[in-house]
Design a protein around this nucleic acid. Structure first.
Lengths: 260, 260
DNA sequence: AACGTCGTACGATAATAACGAACAAAAGGA
DNA sequence: TCCTTTTGTTCGTTATTATCGTACGACGTT
């Protein structure tokens, strides 16, 4: 993430508050009332009510008439689809990633980075009964995910420094939180052209990831093949290294990448 | 649409303006500049700039550094996915609709209504080379689409009156814009349990549609089987009537509907 | 029936958003 | 190459609005 260009003092408070309301909803919090939102955001009830009324007027939230609670509205569905449909990378990558899923029977993710995190922009599950509890639209930290490390490996030092200087949470016993060790991971990721998540973001979950490059050779996205540790053995990793690298090269080629 | 409960005078202007900015982007207008947006929305440039800065700060828009233009941001993608994933109807309907597509080799849509329009919440294309130029997230009027008429047929008279009393645009030579004739269409749709779009929204496009009911027997959604007129012949329509009705009954059953 | 909680309405005013002017940078045309 | 035009951005003033506090009706609980 490049340095923030616009001063925070130029932000419009009421707009910022309305956006915060939208961000408060989640998979766990599908419906929220006026008082609930006020408590979470530290706003007066009548302030919250006015913001909600404005959001509702244009369909960004919807009120459940019988309970009085609010949920995210269809307008976000529409705008979200505009964003999705404008992602050429996603369309290009899908059939290629589907082949990988079909052949190796594991979940594949496609991610981009945004504001120091990875965002999952596509996910293709295998037919396995045991799959990964991730979802399109989810965010995860970069320092302890395979895809995140693959992206960080190619970012400028300042971006990396910025991330490594903030508090690094240990999600599992395997999460690497020592900045120097993370940097070693990044060096290896760059050398190898791929890297692993060895139960770093979630216990029992391993993945192999590789970067995708655009026509300028810039790393803009990454993919991962993920699975439960019981299936993602070292042998399976060995099997996956070349196919994963070939897959990202194939996608990169279609984006105009001409390097090796 | 029920009567608007909240007074327009209680809306917050700056929030409303920010939402208008988001709504200005479209498939045709993926990137917009400050001055462009100001001209479209009738705002001062510095006002627009402040609104965009606030939206960008939370990831609702993104600025292309090299061109200075803005586009919708990843946060909308994330929130849009929250909305999509919360649509149980969509998940329930998908496999059932897929069977219909596979069997009859035509595009199927799933729609809901919102603020007097239909919104496409799912679309399954067939493998045909010639398909329908619609997309998930798109809105269309209700009075001249098969799905729209199916929904209007079960709505209270006030909702229908409200729609029919606004200006009805003729999209094709076949668009019915006489309110009395539209009402006849709705009576027929209710009697038959299905209805047609006979090149009313778009020349060369026909569909057969039917309503989906929830556990209370309320019509909450509709599906359509659509295709080019050269394929959607009267014979094909005859073939599709029962399967389409059976499909919507199947979906309605899974939503708890117990009627006939 | 009484009490507590929630969503909503409304008016006063403190705080902010809007606007206008100005500037730097970039693009386009001569 | 130079000049003009356009765009994005900044900043200060003030008109306007968003926020807050109070109050009320509806609903749920005891």
């Amino acid at each position: 993430m490049q340095k923030q260009k616009k001063s925070k003092s130029s932000l419009i408070q009421s707009v910022d508050r309305a956006l915060q309301i939208l961000e408060t909803f989640s998979r766990e919090k599908k419906e929220l009332g006026v008082t609930e939102l006020s408590n979470i955001l530290g706003l007066h009830k009548s302030t919250t009510f006015g913001l909600l009324a404005t959001l509702e007027n244009r369909g960004f939230v919807d009120q459940n008439i019988s309970t009085g609670k609010y949920k995210l509205g269809l307008k976000l569905f529409e705008l979200g689809n505009l964003v999705k449909d404008s992602m050429e990378l996603r369309a290009i990558a899908y059939p290629i990633l589907k082949e990988l899923v079909d052949k190796y029977e594991e979940t594949v993710h496609l991610v981009v980075h945004d504001k120091g995190e990875v965002v999952y922009i596509d996910k293709i599950d295998s037919n396995s009964a045991i799959n990964i509890n991730s979802y399109v639209g989810k965010r995860n930290p970069m320092y302890c995910t395979g895809v995140g490390k693959c992206l960080l490996a190619y970012m400028d030092a300042e971006y990396v420094e910025n991330i490594l200087s903030s508090e690094l949470k240990a999600y599992t016993a395997n999460t690497i939180v020592d900045p120097e060790k993370i940097k070693d991971e990044l060096v290896n990721a760059r050398l190898n052209g791929y890297c692993f998540d060895n139960e770093e973001i979630e216990e029992g979950l391993r993945c192999i990831a590789a970067p995708i490059k655009n026509h300028l050779g810039q790393v803009i996205a990454a993919i991962s093949v993920s699975g439960p540790s019981m299936r993602m053995t070292d042998q399976k990793f060995d099997l996956l290294i070349e196919p994963v690298k070939e897959t990202t090269l194939k996608i990169s080629r279609q984006l105009g990448y001409r390097g090796v």
